[in-house]
């Protein structure tokens, strides 16, 4: 058991790497949620070309392997599109990796959001039409708040999948926790120190803990959402019962 513990200096390096991993996860998550919303709603659009493009995006993002997508974005795209979009040339690996992971998450997330919107009873949409809400209001105030309860659990799992995906950056030339582990491994092997396995065990445990934290955050979100729904009912019930005798 003691051989599994690392030195404090090594843990400090792991911490640095972890911060990079979390930053990468955060960027990918923001892009992923944005793409999920846009594409997920686009899949249900009235316009055929929007549906077609959204469908193409989803199939592409889900069909391609995330590591291949990462390599394409990090290695091939800057050379291929450098002339047309000079922006991609000077980007650090971490930015391209965030895009790759975000696209990947967007593909899966779009299907989650589409499924949740479809699952909302049709009467809700019909009611918004009766109330003359425009499509944006319909989505923002009626459909999505109800859909959130269906979205959150699978979205938590998806976020953990993306956390697992961030480790791929280490083999594509970017810096993250796994890269740091690999650097430490290299220096240990150079010094002839044995016990490299312990490094990976520690890395695995850290990933596990982060995944559990993400899981807990999403559970917390679910519970907060449920509480809000309950509270709303309570609030609306009181003014109604008070207002009616006074109105008469």
């Amino acid at each position: 058991m003691e051989d599994l513990l690392l030195t404090p200096g090594q843990y400090a390096r792991l911490y640095n790497g972890l911060r990079a991993t979390l930053q990468l996860l955060g960027q990918a998550f923001v892009l992923g949620i944005f793409l999920s919303l846009v594409v997920g709603v686009g899949r249900l659009s009235e316009r055929k070309w929007v549906r077609a493009i959204s469908f193409g995006f989803v199939e592409f993002a889900r069909g391609i392997s995330s590591i291949i997508l990462l390599f394409i974005l990090v290695i091939a795209i800057p050379i291929l599109l450098g002339d047309i979009f000079p922006w991609v040339l000077g980007q650090p690996v971490i930015v391209m990796a965030s895009i790759a992971l975000g696209v990947n998450m967007g593909g899966y997330g779009a299907e989650i959001i589409r499924g949740s919107i479809v699952a909302i009873p049709k009467g809700q949409t019909e009611a918004t039409i009766a109330l003359n809400l425009n499509p944006t209001q319909r989505l923002r105030y009626v459909i999505l708040p109800q859909a959130m309860r269906i979205i959150l659990p699978p979205m938590g799992n998806l976020t953990i999948e993306i956390l697992k995906g961030t480790a791929l950056v280490a083999v594509a030339g970017g810096y993250d926790m796994m890269r740091e582990v690999r650097n430490m491994e290299a220096s240990m092997l150079a010094e002839g120190v044995i016990g490299v396995t312990a490094l990976f065990v520690n890395a695995l445990i850290i990933y596990f803990i982060v995944a559990q934290v993400i899981n807990a955050l999403f559970r917390f979100g679910e519970r907060a959402l449920d509480r809000r729904f309950e509270q709303r009912e309570g609030r609306s019930a009181i003014p109604l019962s008070v207002a009616q005798p006074g109105g008469n």
């Binding site: 480790a167 796994m178 582990v181 559990q212």
Partner: peptide
């Protein structure tokens, strides 16, 4: 399930 397969491969290789 909640740890990256990439790290697991490195671990298996080291093991």
């Amino acid at each position: 399930r909640s740890t990256p397969i990439l790290v697991q491969m490195f671990f298996a290789q080291a093991l």
